[in-house]
Amino acid sequence: GFTKEQQRLGIPKDPRQWTETHVRDWVMWAVNEFSLKGVDFQKFCMNGAALCALGKDCFLELAPDFVGDILWEHLEILQKE
Rank of each mutant, 00 (worst) to 15 (best):
T3Q: 12
W72L: 05
L51P: 02
L60H: 11
I11K: 02
M46W: 03
L51W: 01
P64K: 03
Q17S: 11
L71F: 02
V31F: 03
T3Y: 07
I77T: 14
L71Q: 00
D57C: 09
Q6I: 15
W18T: 00
E61L: 06
W26K: 02
K37L: 08
I70S: 07
L54V: 06
L60S: 10
F2V: 06
F66Q: 15
V23W: 01
A49G: 09
L62W: 04
D14P: 02
P64C: 04
Q42M: 07
H22A: 05
L62F: 06
H22F: 00
V23N: 01
N32E: 12
G1F: 14
R8S: 08
M46F: 13
G55N: 15
E5C: 09
L78A: 06
A30C: 13
F44A: 02
L75N: 02
H22V: 03
A53N: 14
S35V: 05
D40A: 06
G48S: 01
V27Q: 02
W72C: 03
H74D: 07
E61A: 13
W29V: 02
V27T: 05
D14V: 03
K4S: 11
L36V: 06
V67N: 06
Q6F: 10
E20H: 09
F2P: 05
E61N: 13
V23A: 03
D65A: 14
G55W: 02
V31M: 11
D57E: 14
G48H: 00
A63K: 03
W18E: 01
F66N: 15
E5R: 09
K56A: 04
Q79H: 08
F41A: 13
R8C: 08
L71E: 01
G68I: 04
L71R: 00
D57N: 13
D40K: 07
A63C: 14
L9F: 07
E5A: 11
D65M: 13
I77L: 15
T21E: 10
T21S: 13
P64Q: 06
E76A: 12
C58L: 13
G38W: 04
W29A: 04
L9T: 10
K56S: 02
K56P: 04
W26M: 01
T21L: 11
E73T: 07
K56G: 01
F66V: 15
K4M: 12
A30Y: 07
P64N: 06
W26S: 00
K43A: 09
F41K: 10
D25V: 11
T3K: 14
L36Q: 03
K37N: 12
L75T: 00
